[in-house]
Amino acid sequence: MTPRTSDFQLLDHCLTDAEFSELPGFYRNKVRDAYQLPDRRRLLISTDRQSAFDQVLAAVPHKGQVLTQTARYWFDQTEDVCPNHVISYPDPNIVMVKDLDMLPIEIVVRSYLTGSTNTSLWSMYDQGNRVLYGHEFPEGLKKNQQLVEAIVTPTTKPAQGGHDAPITESEILETQLVTPAQWYELVERSLALFARGQELAAKKGLILVDTKYEFGLDENGAIVVADEIHTPDSSRFWIAETYQEKFESGEEPYSLDKEFLRLWIVGQCDPYKDPIPQIPAETLIEFSNKYIALFERLTGLEFEKPDPLVSMRARIREALAKELPEYF
C-alpha cells in the first residue's frame, strides 16, 4: 500500500520524549520512559522510539500505543498461565505496574531456526556453530526451518547500554544467577506462555516463531512475567499461509514484526560494524502499518489512531495528572 501524505505528516508527531519533571524516579530505556514510584509501583510509558541492534534509530508512528495495547491483549489472555505485573492502563501508551525484583536473565523461546542478530539461532548456526545455548543441532539445516520442539535459549540481561549474551542452563545454575527452583519454574512458565501464544496466534493465521520474556519476583517471592509479552518488538510473527512456499524457495516468510526493519538494515550495512543509514520515511510507514496489522489480526479489534490535532504529550500528561494527582 502506497503511503499517503497524511502518513508522512505523522512522522512529525511521534512521541519521542515522555519525561515529566513532576514525577519522581525517572529513567529511560530504549523505547520506554519510566518512573520508579515510592509505593512499589512503576509507571511505564511506551514512546514511538524504535530500536534495533541495540540502538535507537528512528521514531515510528503509533509504535508506543501498538506495543502497549498488544501487550495488554496478551497479558489478559495469559494471566491464568502466569501472573503478570499489570495494575492499570491510565492511557493507551501507559501501563502502571508492580515494582518487581527483576531476575538477571531473559528467557527466549524459539521454535524455528531464524534471526538476523548475533544472538539468533540462524546467525550462530550459519557461522558453523552446532551447539547453541547448550542445545545440539545437526548438519544440513536451512534458515527458517522449524525445530523439532520449542527450546529455551536464555541470555544475560545487559547493563544500560550493554548487549545481551547467550548463556546455558548449566552456566546459570553454576553461577547461581537464579536458584535451581526458580530456573525450572522459569522454563516451565516460559514454555507454557509460548504454547498459549502459538495456540492463539494459529487461530488468527499467524505463526509465533519466537519471543522474549522477562520475569521478576513480587513482594511474596512469586515469579511474575513483566515488561511486555508477545509484541512485535519482542517476538517474530509470520503469516502462516506464506511460510511453506517461502521456506521452500529460500525466501523470508511474510512477517508482521521488528524483523522487517532488521532485514532492511542488514541489507544496507553490517549493523555491528558500520554506521546505520537513515531509514527512509516510506520504510517507517510500512513498518508502522505492519505493527497495526498485527494488532488488528490478533485482537480482532480496529486500531484506534489518536487524534493528530491533539498533542500526545499533553494527552499523556492529563492522564498522569488523573492517575497521580498528588504529583500535579
Rank of each mutant, 00 (worst) to 15 (best):
D257Q: 14
I279N: 04
D99M: 09
K63L: 11
F287K: 03
M96S: 12
A58P: 04
I279K: 05
Y327W: 12
Q145F: 04
S123G: 07
L11K: 01
R49G: 05
P61I: 00
L294S: 08
F247Y: 11
W122S: 03
P180D: 05
D307N: 11
G216R: 04
I316T: 11
Y112P: 10
E296T: 03
D227M: 01
V310R: 13
E323T: 11
I279G: 06
P277Q: 10
S311H: 05
F194Q: 04
A226I: 02
E19R: 15
N118A: 15
E106D: 13
L132Q: 02
S123C: 13
R236T: 01
E323L: 06
L57T: 07
E106Q: 15
T5P: 14
E245T: 15
N93P: 09
P253H: 13
R4A: 14
P306N: 06
E169K: 10
P275M: 05
E259M: 08
T119K: 09
A159C: 10
F26R: 08
D233P: 05
G267S: 05
A150V: 02
L11M: 00
K246I: 00
I167V: 15
P92E: 07
G162K: 07
L284A: 01
W74H: 08
K98F: 02
T16I: 14
D48C: 04
P166V: 08
E79Q: 15
R40V: 06
F237E: 01
L57W: 05
S234D: 08
A52V: 02
K273D: 10
I316Y: 00
D7V: 04
R28W: 10
D91C: 05
L43G: 03
P24E: 02
D307L: 04
L57F: 11
N144S: 13
T283N: 05
V81K: 10
A150C: 07
K273F: 03
V131A: 05
R196Q: 08
L37E: 09
A226N: 09
E79R: 14
Q244C: 02
I276W: 05
E296Q: 12
V95E: 13
K143C: 14
K204W: 02
R297T: 14
I87W: 05
K157P: 10
T119W: 12
F295C: 09
S234W: 08
A281K: 07
P277R: 04
M124P: 13
A34M: 14
F260P: 03
A202F: 08
G205F: 06
T70M: 11
F8Q: 03
E228A: 01
H85S: 14
A34D: 09
L100E: 08
